[in-house]
Computed example of a mutant assay.
Amino acid sequence: IYKNSDLQTILSVGEKKVISLKKELADFGLLEEERQGLNKPNRLYVGNINADFEVIHRASPLGDKELSKRQVRNCQNDRSRTSKTTAQELSKRQSNETESSETYLSETETNSFDEDEVNNNNSKRAQQSFIAIGKIIQNSPELRSVVQGLIPDLLLNEPQQAEIVVRALERGYHFLITELEKGNSVLTLQKQLQGEVAIKQLLLNTGFKQVDYMRDHLIDISQYGKYFASGFDNRLKIAITTTQSVSEF
């Protein structure tokens, strides 16, 4: 049992996106909704997708055509099973159109306050992320072009994920500066070859490598920032331990 406002919070999306996702699931026979009555949220019945575990990361990309065929077969099977078991319930549920209409209107009116509150909270969190990103760039202006090069769209669409990415870039920048001051041979050589832009260029190259990797392997967008930060940190550590990284990493 979830109101639209609950799903918005869980998925970090707006109401229109929640409605669109629910409609898509229903089209594939993976979701049935049952109204409970005045001021009560709908019951959601989720179809069987024959999945034994949740996949957040896959080791190798899966072709879109292969995936779509498999999904269609599963969805068709699930839909046929679901329609048999729910037909009788649906007939009872839809017996009074007037009652259903009144219930829908009352639920919409009641839930609107919760949804407005969630939207306000999401807006505040997004604003806080933008402010945090601005402060980081203000303190380390060298990161401005790196941030703009790596995540221009993410900054607008997923500010909280963008904040995690920018904080990872900030940590990486200070890490490289410290290692250079310690006399790291790889960084010293790269600075001799590229000059003052060496650190910024290494951040960009390493960041692009991680983003390209995630484009093929990351499934859950809510894990974007965490996944980037972890991979980016590891790549930077590898990059300054081998001279091969200067030209390739």
Rank of each mutant, 00 (worst) to 15 (best):
T242M: 10
R79E: 13
S185V: 11
A198E: 05
N205D: 10
D64M: 12
M214I: 11
Q36G: 07
G37N: 05
R43K: 14
P41T: 06
N157E: 13
T242R: 14
D27F: 05
I56H: 14
C75P: 01
E33D: 06
L176K: 02
Q194W: 07
G225D: 04
S129C: 03
N122Y: 02
E179W: 07
S101Y: 11
R81V: 12
G47C: 01
E109K: 15
R144H: 07
I49S: 10
A229F: 01
L67Q: 08
F113W: 13
K92V: 02
L187F: 05
H174G: 00
R235Y: 10
I19F: 05
Q192A: 09
N50E: 15
S112V: 09
Q148T: 09
V246L: 10
S83C: 02
E181T: 13
T98L: 12
Q190I: 12
E181G: 13
T242L: 08
K182H: 09
N74Y: 01
L25G: 02
I131W: 00
Q94S: 11
Y104T: 14
N122P: 00
R58G: 07
I199H: 01
F228K: 02
Q210W: 00
K65N: 09
E89N: 13
A198M: 04
V13E: 01
A239F: 05
S95T: 12
T110F: 07
L202I: 11
E181A: 14
Q128C: 00
S5K: 03
A26V: 01
G63H: 10
F228S: 06
K17L: 03
S145M: 09
R167N: 13
I151K: 04
Q138V: 06
Q138P: 00
P152W: 02
K182E: 09
T243Y: 12
S145K: 11
R144P: 00
T86D: 07
Q223V: 06
V166Y: 01
Q201I: 07
V211T: 08
L105S: 14
S91T: 11
L62P: 00
I56V: 15
F208R: 12
L236M: 05
I137K: 13
N42L: 03
S100T: 07
G14D: 06
E248L: 14
T178L: 11
L154R: 06
N50D: 14
S222P: 00
N42R: 01
E54V: 14
H174S: 08
L154M: 08
N48T: 04
T110E: 07
L67P: 00
T98I: 15
E142M: 08
N4V: 09
S145G: 05
S83Q: 07
Q76H: 13
I10V: 06
F249L: 15
S100D: 10
F53R: 12
V18C: 04
F175D: 03
V246K: 06
L105A: 15
E196Y: 02
R235G: 04
K92G: 06
S95R: 09
H174Y: 14
A87N: 05
V166P: 07
G47W: 02
L67S: 09
V211R: 08
E163A: 10
E32N: 11
G195R: 06
Q76Y: 13
S145W: 05
Y173H: 15
S100F: 10
E97C: 03
Q138T: 14
